[in-house]
Design a protein around this nucleic acid. Structure first.
Ligand SMILES: [Mn+2]
Ligand SMILES: [Mn+2]
Ligand SMILES: [Zn+2]
Ligand SMILES: [Zn+2]
Lengths: 137, 137
DNA sequence: TTCGTTTTTTGTAACGATTACAAATGTAGA
DNA sequence: TCTACATTTGTAATCGTTACAAAAAACGAA
């Protein structure tokens, strides 16, 4: 089964009608793991979806987030970024070059008894600092 | 030494001139550990600082954050919240009542070798879910 | 104190990501 | 085809935040 078909199946399994804008947006997120913004996605897809509206990108990402297909990453001050990689991992933002990196994270090693009175549904470990490239100077 | 004097000393130690708006804003944050927003701080201090401008609150919080007196908490979608509690702890946001709670967190227990190639300066563990109050229903 | 310089505060305008909304378009089933 | 519903679109509005320059306050030398 090819990628496009798998994307459609995945969407239908989550009660999302696989319209053209939706499948393209999801495919873009699967193929671009650099946590793109709404505007990045919008600009990238304009050439293939001429009538695409930015509102559709917003609507679609809200739908995907709600259905659990993607995660919204709130590590920037201003705009949200989106991630189709659902495996447990943290995000590191370089304060110099502003790039956002994934890093591996084992939630099981964390002592989270401070959370015992809560029902935790969603974990976001955001770290800021200096990436390897920006350390050389 | 009384609280006001300790606040002034703390600010001067960090190269912040202890003006009236600054000392009041810092005092407010020390006495209100519920992660207030800019608007909350602004409205609360209006009665004692008649000419206070919201821009001053923004400027002051940016200065405090830069100097390391407070931390900006980006757990909300829209607005930042501010925290004068600098001890290592995580933040939990209840998706039902929208309250933000602190929880204890031992960074040493976390396996962070995924971060080994980065110089990490700032950790934010933000968790979303349902708080104890909102679980009863 | 007085004068000139620097810092701080203030009000207003601008910015920009996001959302609200209703019209237009597309889709599926009878 | 017809009709009800879902999706997409463009525009306007929202709202937290920032830019900017003027006003006010604090400072330091003479
Ligand atoms: Mn990621
Ligand atoms: Mn806190
Ligand atoms: Zn970097
Ligand atoms: Zn709650």
């Amino acid at each position: 089964m090819d990628l496009d078909q798998r994307i459609k199946d995945k969407m239908m399994k989550n009660n999302i009608r696989p319209s053209m804008p939706r499948t393209r947006i999801y495919k873009y997120l699967l193929e671009h793991r650099n946590h793109p913004t709404v505007d990045t996605i919008y600009k990238a897809l304009q050439s293939e979806l001429f009538s695409l509206s930015k509102t559709t990108v917003y609507n679609t990402l809200a739908l995907f987030t709600d259905k659990g297909l993607v995660r919204a990453i709130g590590i920037e001050d201003k705009e949200l970024r989106y991630d189709a990689d659902l495996h447990t991992h943290g995000h590191f933002k370089c304060v110099k070059c502003h790039a956002i990196f994934d890093f591996e994270l084992d939630l099981d090693t964390i002592n989270l008894q401070g959370l015992s009175q809560f029902i935790a549904e969603d974990y976001h470990l955001n770290v800021k600092g200096v990436c390897r490239n920006c350390q050389e100077v």
